[in-house]
Simulated scan of single mutants.
Amino acid sequence: MNITFRLLFLSVCFFICASCSKEDDKYPVVGDWELIMWTVGIPFDLGNNQVHSLNFLDKTACNVNETLNFNHKGIVTSSNTFNPEITIRLKEDTSDVYFVEEICDEGTIGFSTSYLQVDKLNIELNNAVGMVERNKLTLVYANAIKIYNEVFTEVIESKDLTLVYRKK
């Protein structure tokens, strides 16, 4: 009888501890995330100061205040989405010299949409695949950015757009 009581007590303690675990441990994407990197994997220099960066946010003249909020019900919202118009051209007769131009949006763009929690660390939203790792969320939009030839007469390739967010 004493062993049965101990087993019952341990089982109850286990279930109480398991039910007390934080929801964020089960779904680490839930919460607020700020945009810290926007890249297509091409080093560029918008300011023509001979300092190149892979992170467009290091060079942009646009306001960057994007924050995503993921809730437990599968909804993600942003009230200040970073959405400049970016054009990238490859300099003729080169394989790694790019011209990057931006036009900043005026005003504020926001959205609200559903996301799918694929498993503990992976999500899908807006045709992007996302992964949470060490308080960073990386979203990859496959073939989202077109690279043009120097005179804009043809698209010569497409690059993945990678957005990296840090949990607030």
Rank of each mutant, 00 (worst) to 15 (best):
C20P: 01
E102Q: 08
K159C: 01
E154D: 12
F70I: 06
V51W: 12
T60R: 01
D105W: 14
I88L: 05
N48R: 05
N48L: 08
L10N: 10
L90H: 05
R134V: 11
S158A: 13
V132Q: 00
V40P: 02
C62W: 04
E34K: 14
I145H: 06
L116I: 14
C62G: 01
R89M: 10
L68S: 04
I156A: 06
M1F: 14
I86F: 02
S95F: 08
C62S: 04
D160C: 02
I145M: 08
L7I: 15
D25K: 13
S158I: 08
A18K: 06
A144H: 08
S114N: 14
S79C: 15
L137F: 04
M37I: 09
E157T: 14
T77G: 04
I123D: 00
E150L: 08
H72D: 15
I109N: 13
G41I: 05
R166L: 10
E124N: 13
D24H: 10
C13T: 12
K146T: 13
F9V: 11
S114E: 11
V164T: 12
K168A: 15
A61S: 14
T81A: 09
S11Y: 06
G41Q: 06
N135M: 03
F56A: 04
M1Q: 15
S11D: 07
F152R: 12
K136H: 10
E101R: 12
S79I: 15
L161T: 01
I88R: 01
T108D: 09
L54Q: 09
L57P: 01
F56E: 05
I3H: 12
V30G: 05
G107N: 07
N127Q: 09
I145S: 08
K168D: 15
S21G: 04
T60P: 02
I156L: 05
V30P: 04
L125R: 11
R6C: 10
V129S: 15
E124M: 11
V151K: 13
L161Q: 01
F14I: 08
W38Q: 01
I16E: 00
Q50F: 14
Y165A: 00
N135H: 07
V76K: 02
V140L: 09
Y141H: 08
L8I: 12
D58T: 04
N135E: 04
H52L: 13
F44M: 11
A128W: 04
E85I: 10
S21R: 07
F15P: 00
E157V: 09
L163F: 03
Y27D: 03
L7Q: 13
S11E: 09
L121A: 10
D25R: 15
N126A: 15
N149Y: 07
Y141I: 10
N149T: 10
I3F: 10
N2T: 15
I16Q: 01
I42V: 07
